[in-house]
């Protein structure tokens, strides 16, 4: 029931989470256990049941179009691991 290594690596890539070579099997096994639990869902018929993304049947309230946010760049960039000239820095982005 364990999730195979290749799938674990694909998921890790999608989620951008490094998983060490030594723990891949363990992660796969545990994911497998969770999926086994989740597979119980297949035991019930749900044909015609509308999926429910929100617990309450409320609708969205829209906001008036107004600028309400002042510039707080300095406060925000104090939190940044690396920022310069008002920009957040990351390793080179290649297009």
């Amino acid at each position: 029931m364990a999730v195979d290594k290749q799938t674990v690596e694909q998921l890790a890539e999608l989620a951008r989470i490094a998983i060490s070579e030594e723990t891949v099997d363990e992660v796969g096994k545990r994911l497998g256990n969770v999926l086994q639990l989740v597979d119980q869902l297949q035991s019930v018929h749900t044909e015609g049941v509308a999926p429910m993304a929100h617990p309450l049947d409320e609708v969205q309230v829209l906001r008036p179009d107004a600028v309400t946010e002042p510039d707080q760049r300095e406060a925000f960039q104090e939190l940044a691991p690396q920022a310069e000239q008002g920009l957040y820095l990351v390793p080179k982005v290649i297009d």
């Binding site: 690396q82 310069e84 000239q85 920009l87 957040y88 820095l89 990351v90 390793p91 080179k92």
Partner: peptide
């Protein structure tokens, strides 16, 4: 936007 001017070999991000 990602700005590719060179910041010590890094890219700058303007949001």
């Amino acid at each position: 936007k990602s700005l590719h001017e060179d910041f010590h070999g890094m890219s700058g991000i303007d949001l």
